[in-house]
Simulated assay, not measured.
Amino acid sequence: MKTKNTIRSNALGTASAGLALIAVPSFVLFAVFSLIVGGDALNGFSTEGRYFVSSHGNDTEVSWLTYTISWYLGSLTLVTFLPMVLLGAASQFLGAKDSD
């Protein structure tokens, strides 16, 4: 008979794997996009209708569309990656706790 921890561990593991289907590709896409355009909007800024992405203190002016894409990719990566890691860790913790 499965214990509650095993069931919870399996559910958290499944949720983590589901998030990984979004988090990992979005991270890779965000990293490649940032390399191509010279930075990311999360570290960048906009002023007087001009948009800048930033990387290691170097600011690069980009179009509004490029800035917006970079911002959404970065935000998606942040919003999905941390919960994926936390759910995976919780799943492992509950699974290890159950095997004791």
Rank of each mutant, 00 (worst) to 15 (best):
G39F: 00
T14E: 09
S46T: 11
F33L: 07
V62G: 02
S26K: 05
S34V: 04
P25N: 10
V37E: 11
V24F: 14
V85Y: 06
S26R: 04
G57Y: 01
V24D: 09
N58S: 13
F30L: 07
A17T: 12
G18V: 14
L21Y: 09
T68P: 04
F45V: 06
P25E: 08
T60M: 03
G44I: 01
F27K: 05
R50G: 04
S34L: 08
F27H: 11
L65D: 05
V79D: 05
I22D: 04
S75H: 10
V24S: 10
T77C: 07
F52G: 07
A20Q: 06
L76N: 06
M84A: 11
S70C: 05
I36F: 08
I69L: 13
L82T: 12
P83E: 05
G39N: 03
S16P: 05
L76T: 13
L78K: 07
N58H: 13
T68I: 06
A23K: 05
L73A: 05
T80D: 01
I22E: 09
L35P: 02
V53E: 00
S55L: 13
E48W: 07
V24W: 06
L35Y: 10
M84V: 03
W71M: 15
I69D: 02
F45Y: 15
T68A: 14
G74R: 00
